[in-house]
Design a protein around this nucleic acid. Structure first.
Lengths: 304, 304
DNA sequence: CTGTTAGCGCCTTCAC
DNA sequence: GTGAAGGCGCTAACAG
């Protein structure tokens, strides 16, 4: 019988199966944008675990646009995805639209860009360890005036960086100077503005830690325009360890590796656990917060 | 009645609708990789048109792996997508797996990386115009010895570049020299090898056109290691006009813009036409080949 | 253990 | 016009 079926080229109809089983084997993934390798790597990790487990991935970008993010949430829900993996847009400050998933009992795991909501599951980098290494590294090179160009305050990632920064300074007995903490909206202009603020200080920093490599590249470009000798007058360190910086003239001396691929894997694995558990719920809800350790990668010994 | 439905928060079940309508409103997109902005831009174009027309996009990467590409083709088919948009992997040399879609009557539009198959629909750049501009530009700066680092020969994109190159040289009355045409598998090593071949020639080229900006960056890196003064001793021109090159020390002087976003839009629009027509087929199959004109963008006047 | 059947949620058809 | 019913392709439950 199976022979005949195979001969006739029979193929089960997924739509019918989904319909019948009340599950689609589809998971939705929302990332801010795919034009940053960090998110592509996370997606790669997600895909690899998902495909291995016969899940189909619905991948889409909010493009850091809140309206679009809301529409995508809606679209995912009406596609009846079995679960969601989300990294929020940098402009997202209200989280009502994510409540929808709770209502439909669709498990959600946030990653990297985590909203400031109670009772959520998430996977992120533990930046504290990486920042400590970074400050230790800079301190070892006798830097005492270390600045931080941070990201938007609504992102947990920014709060983490700020806290980690202050703690690590303390551990290295370096006095925290508020004027050395500036912020950017992650745009080229915002970062240029932040860098100019730092350069206009009476006492300029001798080292700058940037929110990520793209911010670092913009900051470096700005610094060069002001005739700063990059990694001589001011040493740059950043987050994400993007390979693209290798091609730039003055890459940051070191970058905090956040293991995006592994973040993707872990997020997908956690989501599968939650989807499996779904239905036969335990009476006490347990929230999972997975933190992957970060690590400072020293990129090159040319200068600094 | 509708009021009540809305009040109760009724939501149609997509799975049931798909099942019943024998269409899923899903389209599959296979790209080689998302770590190149070119493909991200194409995807953006696709998404924008797709969402506007209530299509869900199943986006996935072959990662330039033929096995994976085959698996994705299979997965897409068993998800019963209504249509496919495909850019093939650089290693794809046999096209049997794409025949599957014909069998299931799923329309396919290829884009950018087009297989060498008969009877296919595709959207691509008309590179000839851009290459002509590029050679004209170089010729205007008195370059007579212009080399081409081309991509894998199985890609139509490579054949286009080769042909366009030869034609444009002829038009500018520059003699074509076979030794000035080298190839790369697009890897850093392959490109380095190609560049070394060019540098080892008795008569070195004074200008190099690279397959794309990533190849250009690798070639430039290699050239610098050989103490070539980039854009002085050898002028670099490339394809794709990726913004990332702005951050590099010596970006190519010019790049041929291929309008990836528009390619994505056009590909999706064409696919929708084909999906609509599906079923009530015209007796004579018509193959659509859309060619978007490319254009040389001169990036900077610093040197060259 | 194998074979039959009911029904998932929607849309389309047909009867009224 | 409105309303009831059949069936899409599959699976799970149940009968033989």
């Amino acid at each position: 019988v199976n022979q005949l079926a195979a001969d006739l080229g029979y193929e089960p109809n997924n739509a019918a199966i989904h319909f019948k089983q009340k599950r689609t084997s589809m998971i939705g993934v929302i990332v801010p944008r795919l034009s940053q390798d960090f998110f592509v790597s996370v997606v790669n990790g997600i895909e690899d675990i998902a495909y291995k487990n016969k899940y189909t991935v619905l991948l889409c970008q909010s493009r850091d646009n809140v309206e679009r993010e809301k529409q995508l949430v809606d679209a995912m829900k009406s596609n009846r995805v079995d679960g969601m993996l989300i990294s929020i847009s940098k402009n997202t400050r209200t989280y009502d639209h994510f409540e929808l998933f709770k209502k439909y009992n669709i498990p959600v795991v946030f990653f990297d860009r985590i909203p400031n909501m109670p009772d959520i599951h998430y996977v992120a980098s533990d930046l504290k360890s990486g920042i400590e290494e970074a400050i230790g590294f800079l301190s070892g090179r006798n830097h005492k005036n270390i600045a931080l160009i941070n990201g938007p305050e609504n992102l947990m990632a920014s709060q983490e960086r700020r806290e980690g920064f202050e703690i690590a300074l303390k551990k290295n007995r370096i006095k925290f100077q508020p004027s050395f903490m500036v912020g950017t909206d992650l745009s080229k202009e915002g970062t240029g503005q932040a860098m100019k603020t730092l350069l206009s200080l009476k006492k300029r920093p001798t080292a700058v830690i940037a929110f990520n490599d793209y911010v670092a590249m913009d900051a470096i470009q700005c610094a060069r325009k002001s005739n700063i000798r990059v990694n001589k007058d001011i040493t740059f360190v950043s987050f994400a360890n993007e390979t693209i910086t290798e091609y730039t003239e003055n890459p940051p001396v070191a970058s905090i590796e956040q293991f995006p691929y592994q973040q993707g894997e872990k997020a997908m694995e956690l989501l599968m656990q939650l989807m499996e558990k779904n239905g036969r719920e335990s009476p006490v809800a347990i929230m999972h917060h997975l933190l992957l350790q970060s690590r400072l990668v020293i990129r090159d010994s040319r200068n600094g």
